[in-house]
Measured scan of single mutants.
Amino acid sequence: MSGNGNAAATAEENSPKMRVIRVGTRKSQLARIQTDSVVATLKASYPGLQFEIIAMSTTGDKILDTALSKIGEKSLFTKELEHALEKNEVDLVVHSLKDLPTVLPPGFTIGAICKRENPHDAVVFHPKFVGKTLETLPEKSVVGTSSLRRAAQLQRKFPHLEFRSIRGNLNTRLRKLDEQQEFSAIILATAGLQRMGWHNRVGQILHPEECMYAVGQGALGVEVRAKDQDILDLVGVLHDPETLLRCIAERAFLRHLEGGCSVPVAVHTAMKDGQLYLTGGVWSLDGSDSIQETMQATIHVPAQHEDGPEDDPQLVGITARNIPRGPQLAAQNLGISLANLLLSKGAKNILDVARQLNDAH
């Protein structure tokens, strides 16, 4: 009898209710805020589980004197976190989706994509230029951005401005803007500013005609071990179906173009009346040469937790077992079709030249 009692006690200790789920994140304040929001949602869904947040620095956090596009290494903000995932030191990792490459290392998958916040870019102005827009900034004003995508589009749109690289986390960039006289304004992701509670610093939100956004911008991705079915089931509740389908289309477009950090590629997606609209573009580094096109596809946005595919093969690095396969494939095909259209119009040449120029500098 006593033996059975011990077995029952052991089973209770090993039951999922007692389990601590370890969540990996970057150390920056924004990353911690984003991770806290994901953990809060998981806690609400699984009140019996405990969650421990483990923060670590990544290569991208450490190399702050070089433009991201020049470092010449993929997975700048993800490699150390993936290493911890691989060694079973954490069970899942919360990322900004735009930091996750469209091809993940073997053994990993994006197990959830959370509801997207505003994906557009924002302009934050130096205190002396508050009330201005990019259009009304004085001639030769210097605007800071760490992104080739932003610089290429904005140089084309605002030729009277000069664009220079600015690195560091959000706090560091804002301090550089406010305390030094080098920059009249800087460009940042609206979602990051909003998550930090800095709505009052948003001086201008850039519309798609001015600057399309990065693939996955404004959404959070939760990376897990691809074979860890328990954790895949656990994080599945975080999937937002519309965000998922938009981001599958965007990531398929980028992957098929073979774009990345070192080339200016941008997108804009919208879901309306059962249609998914995808606009994508590529630019030369100075913005003088560009190709942009829009395509659409009829896609039914499923309700969360309709029964999805059981075999769960990944699409552009994403596993969404609780979302039907048909809409996911339709979104992926839309991204591939748009990429093929741009490639047929000469996108590869623009991107190759951009890559060579970026590598040469």
Rank of each mutant, 00 (worst) to 15 (best):
V23H: 04
T25Q: 03
R26C: 01
S28E: 01
R32P: 01
G48Y: 09
A55P: 11
S57P: 06
T58E: 10
T59S: 14
K62F: 07
D65T: 09
L68C: 09
K70C: 08
I71A: 01
I71G: 09
I71S: 09
K74D: 05
S75M: 06
E80F: 01
H83F: 11
A84L: 07
V90G: 03
D91S: 09
D91C: 05
V94F: 04
K98R: 01
P106S: 13
G107I: 01
G107F: 13
F108V: 08
T109K: 13
T109C: 12
D121E: 06
A122M: 08
F125K: 01
H126S: 14
V130W: 06
E135N: 08
L137P: 01
K140E: 14
V142T: 10
V143H: 03
V143C: 14
T145N: 04
T145L: 07
S146P: 04
S147H: 01
Q153D: 01
L154H: 09
L154S: 06
F158L: 11
L161P: 01
S165I: 09
N169G: 06
L170T: 07
L170F: 11
R173N: 03
L174W: 06
L174R: 08
K176H: 09
L177N: 07
L188D: 01
M196L: 12
H199Q: 06
H207E: 14
E210T: 08
E210W: 15
E210M: 01
C211M: 15
C211K: 01
Y213H: 14
G218R: 01
G218L: 04
V222A: 10
E223R: 01
A226G: 11
K227V: 01
K227H: 05
V235H: 01
G236E: 01
P241T: 08
L245R: 03
F253M: 14
L254S: 06
R255A: 05
V263E: 13
V267G: 06
V267Q: 01
M271F: 13
D273N: 15
G274E: 15
Y277G: 04
T279V: 08
G280T: 01
G281W: 10
L285Y: 15
D286C: 07
D289V: 13
D289W: 13
I291G: 07
E293F: 07
T294R: 10
M295R: 14
H300K: 14
H300A: 01
H305V: 10
P309E: 03
E310Y: 01
D311L: 05
D312V: 06
P313K: 08
P313Y: 15
L315G: 05
I318D: 04
A320I: 01
P327N: 01
P327L: 05
A330V: 14
A331L: 01
Q332N: 06
G335C: 07
S337P: 03
A347M: 06
K348M: 05
L351E: 14
V353R: 06
L357W: 01
D359Q: 05
